[in-house]
Amino acid sequence: MSVIYILLTISIIVALVFFVAFIVAVKNGQFDDSYTPSVRMLFEDELIKEKPKKTILTKKE
């Protein structure tokens, strides 16, 4: 039973280390995307295909 307490303590410590590393990375601007907005205008927008218009055919007599 004592092994469970040791493993639980170690897992909480590892989780806290990763959480602190994430917070430090966010504060340092690691996840800021400064490249994509400057290049976005160079890409063409996707063309939207228009649906063909339905025509009503009438029978001439």
Results as ranks from 00 to 15, higher is better:
residue 1 M to E: 08
residue 1 M to K: 06
residue 1 M to T: 06
residue 1 M to S: 10
residue 1 M to H: 07
residue 2 S to V: 07
residue 3 V to W: 06
residue 4 I to K: 07
residue 4 I to L: 08
residue 5 Y to E: 08
residue 7 L to Q: 05
residue 7 L to P: 00
residue 7 L to A: 04
residue 8 L to S: 12
residue 8 L to D: 09
residue 10 I to N: 01
residue 11 S to V: 07
residue 11 S to N: 10
residue 12 I to G: 03
residue 12 I to R: 01
residue 12 I to A: 11
residue 13 I to R: 00
residue 13 I to T: 01
residue 14 V to P: 00
residue 15 A to T: 02
residue 17 V to H: 01
residue 18 F to D: 03
residue 18 F to R: 00
residue 19 F to C: 01
residue 19 F to K: 01
residue 19 F to N: 03
residue 20 V to I: 05
residue 20 V to F: 02
residue 21 A to V: 00
residue 21 A to G: 04
residue 21 A to R: 01
residue 23 I to A: 05
residue 23 I to Y: 02
residue 23 I to G: 00
residue 23 I to L: 06
residue 24 V to E: 09
residue 25 A to E: 12
residue 25 A to N: 05
residue 26 V to F: 10
residue 26 V to M: 11
residue 26 V to I: 14
residue 27 K to N: 09
residue 27 K to L: 13
residue 28 N to I: 01
residue 28 N to M: 06
residue 29 G to W: 06
residue 29 G to F: 03
residue 29 G to A: 04
residue 30 Q to S: 12
residue 30 Q to L: 11
residue 30 Q to K: 11
residue 31 F to A: 04
residue 32 D to A: 06
residue 32 D to N: 12
residue 33 D to G: 06
residue 33 D to T: 07
residue 33 D to I: 08
residue 34 S to E: 15
residue 34 S to K: 13
residue 37 P to G: 04
residue 38 S to Y: 11
residue 38 S to W: 05
residue 39 V to C: 04
residue 39 V to E: 13
residue 40 R to E: 15
residue 40 R to Q: 15
residue 41 M to W: 12
residue 42 L to G: 13
residue 43 F to Q: 14
residue 44 E to Y: 10
residue 45 D to T: 12
residue 46 E to F: 10
residue 46 E to M: 14
residue 47 L to D: 15
residue 47 L to F: 14
residue 47 L to K: 15
residue 48 I to C: 03
residue 48 I to K: 12
residue 49 K to M: 11
residue 49 K to Q: 14
residue 49 K to A: 13
residue 49 K to T: 11
residue 51 K to S: 15
residue 51 K to E: 15
residue 52 P to C: 03
residue 52 P to Q: 12
residue 52 P to D: 15
residue 53 K to A: 13
residue 54 K to P: 06
residue 54 K to S: 10
residue 54 K to I: 13
residue 54 K to L: 12
residue 55 T to V: 15
residue 55 T to M: 14
residue 56 I to C: 01
residue 56 I to Y: 09
residue 56 I to T: 11
residue 56 I to R: 10
residue 57 L to S: 05
residue 57 L to M: 05
residue 57 L to R: 05
residue 57 L to P: 00
residue 59 K to F: 09
residue 59 K to N: 03
residue 60 K to F: 06
residue 60 K to S: 10
residue 61 E to F: 10
residue 61 E to T: 08
